[in-house]
Design a protein around this nucleic acid. Structure first.
Lengths: 223, 223
DNA sequence: TACTTCTGACAATGCTTCATGTCAACATGT
DNA sequence: ACATGTTGACATGAAGCATTGTCAGAAGTA
């Protein structure tokens, strides 16, 4: 009985199982992120409940709402992480193949596809469910893919500054090429990786190269 | 009081409001189909309840379950109808432009995009929600897009029988081209049709042409 | 008019989910 | 050993949903 006891005293946070409070919380957060990847990535967003996420994370609802506002917030966090992981990986590989544009593009594509094969769960998260959750998530996805085609655009224009598409809108073409990769990836993943990754990489690269070639031809001999 | 009254007598079906029983049922079915298109196409599959579908159709739950086993069955029917409508329209236009392959492809593409602009609701149904409902619906969508790339393949190979893709898998390329059109369409629709339909059509056609050109080049002068 | 079918409004059931709350058991530092 | 922070199991409540059922009245038939 301490005499100066305040009425709204904060509980003293302390270590537990050898971990500081922040560490424990981060670990719980992490477990939910992995549970989200596991369940959302296999059964989709709408088929998964908070209770199931908790069971997968071996934690209880209380801690779920400690880390995330709701189911959608967890999905958004998982989505964003997957995007950034894949992006970093692809960019790193592209950098490693500087300055050969052909090698850069092919290696980037291969890394993209290999990432999906290593963890097919992220394919569903990145390309399917994100579009059917809420307008906010749809917009987030739109920005990601727009950013991707923007990068693609910048990339090709830096490599081939002389390219001027006659009557073509580079933004639309870039959107198309991104869509091509995504659709190929989806069919590849859902088809059980029937083709070797090199085949997928080469065929997608062929689309890129075809466009560059077309642009060169159109610009070098107009009409 | 008829003396021979059977215990399990079937109710005599009769006309009502000048319509035969079958006509009435068909009309109810139709109203649910339109309600499904309206609500699924704007708010998505998961955000719509049976009650809302009934309100939109101005009918009651009883009649919903008369026509459809559940919400998913209605979605499947709406999806299938939209696929077939768009396909018929595109095929009709393509036929009308025989035998000029360039005109056929461009007109087909334009009809595809124009169909989406006339009724943006079907974009969501055809490309987004169908993938996140159930494995069965996902498979149905897969078959549709596979059929589409199959047609594309057959089309180009019929027009350019000499084309032999060196080291390329025509199936993957076709999948990519279909994905390109779908992604361009999605961004076009969700971006509020910022570009004129001719621009979208021409840029997608450019992708097609680029591939054909690439194949021709690769086959005529190998290496 | 008398009878039957058809229709719409809505109640009822049973289930599931989200989100919060309770509480005893456990772990820790003193 | 004790007081207290921490945890997991479970309870609770409000809400929403799918599906079936009830019933009075409108619309057709004879």
């Amino acid at each position: 009985m301490c005499p100066m006891e305040s009425l709204d005293e904060k509980p003293k946070r302390r270590t537990f199982k050898g971990l500081a409070p922040e560490e424990r919380q981060r670990e719980r957060h992490e477990r939910f992120m992995e549970a989200g990847l596991a369940l959302y990535g296999t059964r989709g967003y709408h088929g998964v409940t908070v209770k199931e996420l908790c069971a997968e994370a071996k934690l209880t609802e209380r801690y779920f709402y400690e880390s995330f506002k709701d189911r959608e917030a967890l999905f958004g966090a998982v989505y964003q992480r997957q995007v950034e992981q894949l992006r970093e990986r692809v960019l790193a590989v592209i950098r490693r193949h500087l300055p050969d544009p052909r090698a850069m593009a092919r290696a980037g594509l291969e890394t993209f596809f290999q990432g999906l094969r290593e963890d097919p769960r992220c394919a569903r998260i990145l390309f399917v469910d994100v579009l059917s959750i809420s307008p906010a998530m749809t917009e987030q996805s739109r920005q990601v893919t727009s950013g991707l085609s923007g990068f693609l655009l910048q990339f090709t224009q830096a490599l081939y500054p002389q390219l001027r598409a006659q009557g073509l809108d580079p933004e639309i073409v870039a959107t198309g090429l991104v869509g091509a990769c995504i659709n190929v990836a989806m069919h590849w993943v859902y088809g059980g990786f029937a083709q070797p990754v090199e085949a997928v990489r080469d065929n997608c690269y062929a689309l890129f190269e075809a466009m560059i070639l077309t642009w060169s031809v159109k610009t070098s001999k107009p009409g």
